[in-house]
Design a binder for these strands. Structure first.
Length: 281
DNA sequence: GTCCATGTTCTTTA
DNA sequence: CTAAAGAACATGGA
């Protein structure tokens, strides 16, 4: 469900409210949402002060006063909301952090999300660079190493972190690039347009507090509004807002993919740039 | 009953 | 061996 704009919206609302607060009580209703398995979250969280909250990719990374960290990933159906004490807890609420004036609830019916304990170790995850600050040179370099379709490449969090199905489709539309175009065959100009489109798309989505298609809500339970402005995502069969042709929906890597056949012409066969560089050992 | 869903990871195939 | 494609995970809504 939540991609970079949705996760950032939650962080923006949450951080000023919880940084500096002490976790008075930890209630873990389902232990199996915690990684590593069997880890005693209450033992390391209860009584601690939260000293920081940032977004990295699609993760919400919490720092404690003792420099230990953990992150929440919302998966497909996860929600992280601030709720009044004593109010009814919705089904599938798996973790509650109680503060003095309210509580933070993690709810996730499908349980693709969860809590990951990071401890104090440096972040050695293989996550790719942030899309809002990546340079076109760096993206070009990364794309040049894979023959996969650009759509699949941009969904790979190790290549670039934070984009999901919605914002990849929207960004490719903005750049006029067909989702099936092989990543390593994109021209320098195409990658420059792509980086500009990714940043413009994400910034605009952030201004509208993300996209709500079914599950996403912000930290106060409110919906986003960017779904009303989507150019292609979830618009298969409808007319393109730019050229009027019918938006097409195909399946790529098991994910629905929407694009405009007029604005995003099919990739040329052959030609293009050199073969992908084999990573040197 | 069927199909589909904003994501990630493990397994299988080439 | 590696890279890429496919399947699996769990629940709910149309």
């Amino acid at each position: 469900m939540p991609e970079l704009p949705e996760v950032q919206t939650i962080v923006n609302m949450l951080a000023p409210r919880i940084v500096g607060l002490r976790i008075d009580l930890v209630e873990l209703e389902r232990g199996d949402i915690v990684t590593p398995a069997g880890f005693d979250l209450r033992a390391v969280l209860q009584g601690k002060v939260i000293s920081g909250l940032i977004r990295r990719g699609k993760r919400l990374v919490f720092t404690l006063e003792d420099s230990n960290r953990f992150y929440v990933h919302l998966g497909m159906s996860g929600r992280l909301t601030m709720d009044a004490l004593g109010t009814e807890r919705a089904k599938h609420t798996h973790l509650i952090l109680r503060f003095d004036q309210f509580e933070l609830r993690f709810r996730d019916p499908r349980r693709f999300g969860g809590i990951w304990w990071m401890g104090s170790a440096p972040d050695d995850s293989a996550m790719g660079p942030e899309p809002l600050t990546i340079g076109s040179r760096e993206l070009l370099d990364r794309l040049s190493r894979t023959t996969r379709a650009i759509k699949n490449s941009l969904l790979d969090q190790r290549l670039i972190a934070g984009l999901g199905n919605i914002y990849v489709d929207e960004s490719l539309f903005g750049a006029g690039i067909h989702p099936l175009a092989p990543a390593h065959r994109l021209s320098v100009e195409q990658v420059q347009r792509l980086v500009r489109s990714i940043k413009a798309t994400l910034r605009k989505a952030l201004r509208h507090r993300g996209s709500t298609l079914r599950d996403y809500v912000d930290a106060e339970g409110g919906a986003g509004a960017f779904q009303k402005l989507h150019s292609v995502y979830d618009r298969g069969g409808q007319p393109c807002r730019k050229c009027g042709l019918t938006i097409r929906r195909i399946v790529l890597g098991g994910r629905s993919t929407c694009f405009c056949p007029g604005c995003q012409p099919a990739p040329k066969r052959g030609g293009g740039r050199a073969k992908p560089r084999r990573p040197r050992q």
